[in-house]
Design a protein around this nucleic acid. Structure first.
Lengths: 153, 153
DNA sequence: TATTGTTATACTCTATAACTATA
DNA sequence: TATAGTTATAGAGTATAACAATA
């Protein structure tokens, strides 16, 4: 059976856990991940593979697999599988890094760029539903606060 | 190999994905989950089992397994395994719901309540590190924004 | 008929170690 | 000696279907 959608019971809404930042983060992320995966499924992508494709398609990023792993908080061995899949489908290519021949730079193909554009639209539509209760100012504020947790420098 | 800690490469920090709310949510949650699990490990708990224990220990909540599943966004079959584990260790008990004999209410034992108190302290310490960059006002604001995504009513 | 808890199963994701080629 | 990518594997988490007891 699928994880039930819908709202939580009122008795639990007032529980101490419901005010816990980590719990709210986990629950919000679970909803976001589910919405993202189902929006990307028609394109043969999941949130994971979409993220790799998006970084490969970002001009000027030219990420190595190691950088992808660190940025996406994945193990390098998981990046291997994700890049394998995208490469098999002709969406990205591995190019040796001229400055370090151990490293592969992951670059998008023309086909990958086209799919990425569709995926951005699909992901944006899914986010729109998820953040329906937030206006542009709220979203910017939320992004700024989350960034300080996600990238503590 | 473990997922590498530390900061992300600068070239990717300016990528479009780095401004995506869903991505920031995912990365912040990954850090939060890792910190929580490692803080709770000495008590034999993980974030999952801690959440179930916390709701069972919340006075007035008296959640059924179904309510736990919905609130924590878990499949009911996963709740079975989590409650089995906590019950085996004498931390919670299943009690038949008087108003619906199909349902089990999950209630904390004295031993469970004692462990829960330790766990709250451990989790709070882990959160403190994670949210070191945020003051009380920031945290309250973040919680309010996340709640609107986590519980869209 | 529908729902709660349960069992079973398959699949995905996560974590760890070891190997190779380069640095 | 250390690092990038790769392979292999075990464990944790997720998704789905079916069943007994109860509503």
């Amino acid at each position: 059976m699928a994880i039930p959608e819908g709202t939580a019971p009122d008795a639990l809404a007032t529980a101490a856990l419901a005010d816990d930042l980590s719990f709210l983060l986990a629950r919000a992320n679970a909803l976001s991940l589910a919405a993202g995966n189902s929006a990307l499924a028609p394109l043969g992508l999941r949130v994971r593979s979409y993220s790799v494709l998006a970084l490969a398609a970002d001009d000027g990023a030219r990420p190595t697999q190691r950088e992808l792993a660190e940025f996406l908080r994945l193990d390098p061995s998981q990046v291997v599988a994700l890049v394998d899949d995208l490469q098999r489908r002709g969406l990205v290519e591995r190019r040796p890094d001229p400055s370090d021949r151990r490293a592969n730079v992951v670059v998008v193909t023309d086909e990958g760029r086209a799919l990425h554009q569709q995926a951005v639209a699909a992901a944006a539509a899914a986010e729109h539903d998820l953040h329906a209760g937030l206006d542009a100012h709220d979203r910017a504020q939320l992004a700024a606060l989350l960034r300080r947790i996600a990238f503590p420098d």
